[in-house]
Design a protein around this nucleic acid. Structure first.
Ligand SMILES: [Zn+2]
Ligand SMILES: [Zn+2]
Ligand SMILES: [Zn+2]
Ligand SMILES: [Zn+2]
Lengths: 186, 186
DNA sequence: AAAGGTATGTTATATTATCACATAAGCTGA
DNA sequence: TCAGCTTATGTGATAATATAACATACCTTT
């Protein structure tokens, strides 16, 4: 993650109505799970939702600062933990950064967790992430064939899955198409 | 990674002959690639090889210290970068720690990189890692069906893979078998 | 030996994350 | 309502991981 002081991230002045709607949906999701999307958690989720890129904890921290208010790291990390636990965001390990769960943006997860996983494990909601090195976008996909392959392999090994990260770095379709082929590549 | 001061890692006093043999093999591999496995790089690879667990950079740093010699972080990170670039170790993102590449321990990679990947991308040598939360072991596997699923999905999306991390956390077969089933799990 | 690339030493600092303890806010049942 | 509990937040310090910048040494080639 870039340093917060030189971060290229641009946060909007105010949240768009679309983001507000997503926050309301997230709120409903939390309530259904017996959890509270407090004002602070809502604010942080709002920031993550309103940037079209993975966001670092210290980017958030920086963004939350006002003359009145200088939040400390634990404030952000606690909120992030909450959002992670409730499946509202994902952590991208390779970037030490966070993105909203795309399921929040669509209907398929609004009804709550319906994945199969055992009692001890958190909801896997096993997604995969395509990280573009050129435009810094992160695309969340949920591909059954990847998932099946992973599950089958683990079952064969007797390995009990509790959570997983599948992160692919490279060039997104757009950037790959616009990449010049090096001229001197004999 | 646990703090270096309270790390549970145990490094042996001296390297076993088996480890020495692996280092010699690594040396040969580097030479074939026109790279030099210097004394320092060899020392660090030796430390990683001689611990049956993922090792953090600062664990290595700690272990390298003698009355005469207080290496600084860049010393370790530069060696780690070299070892990563030459496929001798892997970084486990979830642990911010490093493990030897199992291919080094077997014959199938000794002849050098023969994977297919384009010019810009490093050798994927795309492995998957099964991380046991109980015994802290990391098992490296290379499962073609997972790889195929990932490649196919990326191709469909037009995404150009440059590198990837596939990390599964849970319980290894041994630990899963010895885990008590919670009595009150109705 | 000179030159150039590669490797290492050294100091400082950046970045990411957690601990420990105090305070506040929300909920529950007398 | 209010005491008592749980959850959430504030705050200061610090831990853990990683890199920047620049100096020096080493190795290879000419
Ligand atoms: Zn998701
Ligand atoms: Zn892109
Ligand atoms: Zn490997
Ligand atoms: Zn285990």
């Amino acid at each position: 993650m870039k340093s917060a002081t030189q971060s290229a991230l641009v946060f909007p002045e105010t949240l768009s109505p679309a983001t507000q709607a997503l926050l309301d949906r997230a709120d409903a999701l939390c309530t259904r799970q017996g959890a509270r999307l407090t004002q602070q958690r809502r604010e942080i989720l709002g920031l993550i939702l309103s940037v079209n890129a993975p966001v670092g904890a210290y980017d958030l921290l920086e963004q939350m600062k006002t003359p009145d208010r200088r939040p400390a790291p634990p404030t952000v990390y606690r909120a992030l933990d909450f959002l992670l636990e409730h499946g509202l965001i994902h952590r991208i390990e390779r970037l030490s950064a966070f993105v909203p769960c795309t399921h929040l943006l669509h209907d398929d997860h609004a009804a709550g967790c319906n994945h199969d996983h055992d009692q001890d494990s958190i909801c896997l909601h096993t997604a995969q992430f395509l990280i573009c090195r050129s435009c810094k976008s992160v695309i969340e996909i949920t591909n059954p064939s990847i998932l099946d392959a992973v599950r089958t392999t683990c079952r064969e090994q007797g390995f009990v899955i509790q959570s997983s990260s599948i992160e692919i770095e490279g060039l997104c379709a757009h950037c790959a198409a616009h990449r010049k082929t090096p001229a001197h590549q004999h």
